[in-house]
Design a protein around this nucleic acid. Sequence first.
DNA 1: AACTCAAATATTTTCGAAAATACGACGTTG
DNA 2: CAACGTCGTATTTTCGAAAATATTTGAGTT
Lengths: 241, 241
Amino acid sequence: MTIRSLPATGRAVAKTAAAKAEASTGGHVLTRLRSDIVSSEFKPSARLKFAELTKRYDVGIGTLREALSQLASEGFVTVEAGKGFKVAPVSAEELVEITDLFISFEKRAIREAIAEGDEDWEANIVAVHHRLSLIEGLPWADRMERHAEWVQRHREFHEALVAACPGHWLLRLRTMMFDQLDRYRFVTKNASESQGRKKFDEHREIMLATIARDGDKAAELIEKHIRDTSDRALTILARNG
Amino acid sequence: MTIRSLPATGRAVAKTAAAKAEASTGGHVLTRLRSDIVSSEFKPSARLKFAELTKRYDVGIGTLREALSQLASEGFVTVEAGKGFKVAPVSAEELVEITDLFISFEKRAIREAIAEGDEDWEANIVAVHHRLSLIEGLPWADRMERHAEWVQRHREFHEALVAACPGHWLLRLRTMMFDQLDRYRFVTKNASESQGRKKFDEHREIMLATIARDGDKAAELIEKHIRDTSDRALTILARNG
DNA sequence: AACTCAAATATTTTCGAAAATACGACGTTG
DNA sequence: CAACGTCGTATTTTCGAAAATATTTGAGTT
């Protein structure tokens, strides 16, 4: 076998769970399907018919079914025996609950990460935050252009913060809630420039508090940060009915 | 539409999620597979080959694959693309973490249930507790004979306690952790008669505190109750290596 | 019109054959 | 003999035809 590639930068980070899933076509369709639900390509409560989906993603029925049942256990779709799959509905109540759960997990996880994290953990946070800030610091038009990339880097940033937390299940549940929040965050994507600037500052402050190993401050900043976004999603949701 | 059936007893409880899953053969094999993992029929870290499983459960490969991927997102099995499925390993660390998470969910859920629960909720708790006590009050030999039934009724009892909690995600995560704990509880099934008597008493006390709407007391009793079982599992786990 | 029932249609669910991939055995080479 | 590549076997992964199930349509009845 030939050498696959020289690690260009020093980014010796293990492949993420998401990247691993992408290896197989089944994992790929799972990712695409979830992304299409998050981006409301498939509207809440819409039926997901195999006939349509096989054409759209060009995969077999079996593969699709596997992806859909996984999304069902993740909570993105509902399934009723004999009646097929539907996109899970969204509601203000659910957003409130998911937000509360996510915040409680994230706060606990970051405290533990701060207590346990080593120098690599710290360095990775700085690196990933930098990547995020490269997009967030852009002129507003460019920033919006690269929204999809921003979502990815934002996720990586929050993941890096808690990566040193030793509780695997805590991280797992945290990620589950983060994924659910994505659905609601999506409605806030057309934010104002001032909102964008605010996020930029918040991320830097969170990063600094974490590096300074100030668990209380980091937890408090994160709570504000998350709740603020959720509150905006909530008002948008209320406006649309 | 004709009357479907006269509710023979007063048990007007909605069909449980588990019962719904059993409707399809896919749901059935999922349940059996999970149960076989919980009961250590398949040992932790053991490979799960399709050839073997199709014979054992007499279902097609596709159906099995679907069940296995769901168990993967529930955390009972692990999956590596191209290498198939394995039973998830168990460890003392994991037991400690799962116990902590479950207790935090259960305590929060029961407080909310006590705040929100109506008379039907109360009545159901009394009924389900009675069904549980019918087995727990049996002479020890008979009690052990019906262990599988006990597991089911024990689950129903704890589910009934928190059923009035309005947070769907909280209940969902709670159930996830409860299911995981089942794997570890299994090693404690050969308990002594005195242990059995203790559980019998604890369940009655929890039931009474809940009916009396004493959230603090109920939460405290539950924490002790759960932690006690986990601690015993922990010592057994340590003894076996 | 309102209701029932059966046939026709639409959709899901199951299954295992076929393709793709991983793994081990074995000979070859440096 | 260790490292490498090749072939054969074991296993997983994908796919869509066929069976099972749900839904709609429409003719017949009250």
